[in-house]
Design a protein around this nucleic acid. Sequence first.
DNA 1: CGAAAAATCTACCGATCGGTTAGGAGCGTG
DNA 2: CACGCTCCTAACCGATCGGTAGATTTTTCG
Lengths: 197, 197
Amino acid sequence: MTRRREGATGELTLIERARRTQLIEVTIELVADRGYGGASLAAIAERAGITKAAVLYHFPTKDAVVRAAHKHALAALVADVAGTVEAADAASRPAAYVRSMVGHLREHPRHTRMIIEAMVHDDGDSDPAARWRPLAELISAARAARGGNGDTDARTTAIIVGGGIDAIVAEQLHDPDYDTAAAAEHLIEMLDPTLSP
Amino acid sequence: MTRRREGATGELTLIERARRTQLIEVTIELVADRGYGGASLAAIAERAGITKAAVLYHFPTKDAVVRAAHKHALAALVADVAGTVEAADAASRPAAYVRSMVGHLREHPRHTRMIIEAMVHDDGDSDPAARWRPLAELISAARAARGGNGDTDARTTAIIVGGGIDAIVAEQLHDPDYDTAAAAEHLIEMLDPTLSP
DNA sequence: CGAAAAATCTACCGATCGGTTAGGAGCGTG
DNA sequence: CACGCTCCTAACCGATCGGTAGATTTTTCG
């Protein structure tokens, strides 16, 4: 058993931190470029310049590496979006959310592919509605701020708009010249009427 | 070389047809239930009640089986949708398209998962915009029929609406009680204003 | 019936998968 | 110096992958 301390509360070594970060980064690259199946232990180890066993010294299993990479990409995303959205007033937060989300995903295409790949792969236990729940709450709040009609299903609106965001980003992944900013504004124009009574 | 005639123009045996159909069906089930990686030759063969070698007698490679399954699911989808859409007049065809697409995907969840899985897996060579091009053309035609403003980007509208369709279906896959029909109507309500001058 | 063709089986191949084991540098500390 | 800890390598494991070769059964048809 050459396994790492798992939930140890002790602080990590500097080298350990650096290695983990590096492994997460190369894993994001691999999953983004070659899909979940393409991110084998051997591939991860090779890109990091170490051996498979060394990778498994820092993480208990391969899935743990991929999960850590997914978590990292997701955390960076929500932190970025949350910061932008807070600056807007309630009525325009859904628009700010869409703009910020599309913008972030365009600036970090690797993270985008990583998140999408993870979404597709972990079958079942992830709810699409849960992914867009923050957006659903912003939509509810905006409707309330604009005076009523909070009866319309914010969950469905959020799911649809979220799907639109994903589609815009996916298109940009295929065609780097695609004008995602214009597409985001178009999506916002479609969303806006549903926010007013 | 125990390989099948590949592009032979000759007619196929009844058994061959039945086997191919069966193999395509079990492959759709497998890909839908366990993802692309879960559809191994051994798994396909087991579900069909034959051996791996027998599978490779009817198809040259494993990928050929999966591609055939994808093609089958896709063909069934477009045939279904096309039939419904033609019955509507130009101005309301986009709405009919959305309704029909969501309805078909709900009635054939396996096909849905198969298509999504294939979409994610074949990296790069498939353009999201191409997938929704038929919808983009319906949107353009509807705008023309309603009198002008064909300047708005139909491609982007189609991509956004298409993403909304995918998201609705994905949510229904996770929550079977989800009201996809209502969601489709909501999506249509968001689409409609963009079709008029 | 008997032979050709179609369909399938058993058995194997090399490659790769995630993971394990044992050990050995390098380094700071008693 | 010797001990202990961190970080890593070389070698290996059993399982599974897609695919192949050749024998064998089943079907078709003159």
